[in-house]
């Protein structure tokens, strides 16, 4: 479980987050949604410790990330996996070397054990047999899946995904969403997904927080999204003219 408490973040005079309090539950896919510029990425970067909040605290179970010393932080980070929006795969390394990187860095396993683990992770994301390829030789969707494989290679307890569906077609997006949800349930990990993709919200949104202008505008689950009369939520969900027409025609 991760709990963000009264998170405030200022960049100079600009107040980006204005006191966010939210609990990201274990074994569930927790979604942070909101328009561009609402503070989603800043919140995610605070949650993983890339940014320090101006005030507030981030609790990973019983450890406060903000006040933790460097050793605690490093140990904590070994339990964290992250999928970046741009994948952040190392261009000069093969897919196998990319996924093996955390194992090489933090474990004393033999090469065979590491290779077995890499193959298992690649199988988990349905990409067996691409070990020797370079990131530039595979598609964007495959790169996302390799990013997920690298994020789960050390069996993390916390998984963060920044816009996992950006730049992907709807079908591939669904595959990625389902994969993230399966991994979350199978390993009972705390997953936080930063997205503005409505398909993801309706597919895997078990615990959702909506950010608007740096404030927590709404929280709930995918079942409550369509019933709730919250104006900000309504504006965000039905922003698409296609969806509006679809609803009108169904009425």
């Amino acid at each position: 479980m991760i709990r963000a408490e009264h998170i405030v973040k200022n960049f100079g005079d600009q107040e980006v987050l204005k006191g966010i309090t939210f609990t990201f539950e274990a074994g569930k896919t927790n979604l942070v949604i909101g328009k561009s510029g609402s503070g989603k990425t800043v919140l995610l970067k605070i949650l993983v410790g890339l940014f320090k909040p101006t005030s507030g605290s981030v609790w990973y179970d019983d450890v406060d990330l903000v006040t933790a010393n460097k050793d605690t932080l490093r140990k904590l980070r070994m339990k964290v996996g992250m999928l970046f929006q741009g994948n952040a795969l190392f261009d000069s390394m093969t897919i196998e070397e990319n996924i093996r990187f955390p194992l090489d860095m933090f474990t004393t396993q033999t090469l065979k054990e590491k290779t077995d683990r890499v193959n298992y992770c690649l199988e988990r994301v349905s990409l067996s047999g691409i070990n020797k390829k370079f990131p530039s030789e595979i598609s964007g969707g495959m790169q996302k899946r390799v990013g997920i494989a690298r994020a789960i290679v050390l069996n993390p307890r916390y998984l963060f995904c920044d816009e996992p569906n950006s730049g992907l077609d709807p079908q591939t997006s669904i595959t990625i969403d389902e994969l993230i949800q399966d991994i979350t349930r199978d390993n009972n990990i705390t997953t936080v997904i930063n997205t503005h993709d409505m398909n993801s919200v309706m597919e895997i949104g078990e615990n959702i927080c909506l950010l608007d202008k740096g404030l927590l505008a709404w929280e709930g689950s995918k079942d409550e999204v369509l019933q709730d009369q919250n104006e900000t939520l309504h504006d965000f969900i039905f922003a698409s003219p296609f969806l509006q027409k679809l609803i009108e025609s169904s009425k």
Binding site: V48, R74, Q85, G86, A88, F90, P102, F160
Partner: peptide, 14 residues
């Protein structure tokens, strides 16, 4: 710029 350093930081690499 490609967030490789951020990725390593999050893994716990110095």
């Amino acid at each position: 710029q490609k967030e490789h350093i951020d990725a390593m930081d999050i893994m716990g690499v110095n």
